[in-house]
Design a protein around this nucleic acid. Structure first.
Length: 355
DNA sequence: AAAACGTGGCA
DNA sequence: TTGCCAAGTTT
């Protein structure tokens, strides 16, 4: 099979996208219209390593609260983090906030139009920069995300490891060829991703509905199911957490804040001791929180990509001085608008669904 | 440059 | 139940 012509490939993908395009909150009615770069920034940061269905629930709440890049730049850092609660990869919230501030202070509030300038913004890598530049400013900038990589590797029946640097280099070059041949760079780029999301899916690709099936080497060889070669699973480390729930007479709960970096950076939590190898011993736990007695009330596990976290939850009554220093009392109402990880939401707001 | 960083849905 | 995976970036 001859190498697929970028021209025909690009046009076929664009034509298909104009028909098959899903209606999503961050997509305007007109596919070829220039997009609001601020809305692109928000949706792209939210979409990094995150499924569309998760972002649909968050995008409108976020942009309703922060309708402009100026309003986001002026926002309180913790409120931004709170709106990110439950989305994961919380560093993105901080980076998005920093990017908004950078546009306001370093670009006088005028969103930069060149891919290199956009990529200089916090939290914006090559993929996100190309995405914003092509969708908001019609730049012929390529994009390669997980979807695009899968589509291209299958089109070329390329079984080389996706993350290898020479593979990446090849993928970006192919993506550049396609966007050069496109009618509308933004339409081609978004179409390529949509093709990966709707047709050229990881498990059971719908080749019978694929607009570029005729150009696909993997399909010709019947190898679409085995490409691309799967990546090795991440090694999971154990983490043991003891969280203490303290409620005072007025129903307020004791919380502390995590350090800004690392796992669940900057989020609030019930006072929690962590250990890599074992749970804390009861006496040291008591001494640490300053309680006379502790009652175990709950245990559960929580999985992340790199960790298996075992929680034990303890109950105790307030002791004078507990709310000083790094700790503070919060009412249930206040807890509802606090930035909390999913396990801590389970501990601090039991019975309340994520919202 | 490898490792870290979250979460929920689905097979 | 366990593993896989999703619009990547940062350090």
């Amino acid at each position: 099979m001859p190498p697929p012509s970028p021209r025909r490939l690009a046009r076929a993908i664009e034509a298909w996208f104009l028909k098959a395009r899903r209606d999503l909150p961050w997509r305007p009615a007109d596919p070829a219209a220039a997009r609001d770069p601020y809305h692109c920034l928000v949706s792209e940061l939210m979409l990094q390593q995150t499924q569309v269905s998760r972002v649909i629930e968050r995008f409108e709440t976020f942009t309703a609260r922060f309708p402009t890049i100026e309003s986001l730049a002026a926002a309180d850092a913790h409120e931004v983090l709170a709106l990110w609660s439950g989305l994961g990869y919380y560093r993105r919230a901080r980076l998005l906030h920093a990017a908004a501030k950078a546009v306001v202070s370093e670009h006088a509030g005028e969103f930069p139009t060149q891919p290199e300038q956009i990529q200089a913004l916090p939290g914006v890598g090559r993929y996100t920069a190309g995405s914003i530049a092509s969708m908001a400013f019609h730049a012929r900038a390529p994009i390669v995300d997980g979807n695009v990589a899968r589509v291209l590797l299958r089109l070329h029946a390329d079984g080389s490891p996706q993350t290898a640097s020479n593979t990446q280099k090849r993928l970006w070059a192919q993506a550049q060829e396609l966007v050069n041949a496109a009618e509308h760079p933004g339409v081609l780029n978004e179409g390529l991703m949509e093709l990966g999301a709707l047709i050229c899916t990881p498990r059971s690709p719908a080749c019978d509905r694929c607009p570029v099936r005729a150009h696909c080497a993997a399909h010709a060889q019947g190898r679409q199911h085995e490409l691309p070669t799967p990546k090795a699973p991440a090694v999971q480390r154990e983490l043991f957490c003891d969280a203490v729930r303290v409620r005072d007479a007025r129903g307020r709960v004791l919380v502390e804040r995590r350090p800004d970096s690392g796992l669940w950076g900057g989020l609030y939590q019930a006072p929690t001791r962590e250990s890599a190898d074992r749970h804390a011993r009861l006496p040291e736990l008591r001494a640490w929180i300053g309680a006379e007695s502790l009652d175990r009330s709950q245990r559960f596990t929580h999985q992340t990509t790199h960790r298996r976290v075992s929680f034990r939850v303890w109950e105790t009554s307030p002791v004078r001085g507990m709310g000083s220093g790094e700790r503070a009392w919060k009412s249930r109402l206040q807890l509802g608008s606090l930035a909390l990880s999913t396990p801590q939401r389970r501990i601090l707001l039991p019975g309340l669904s994520l919202a």
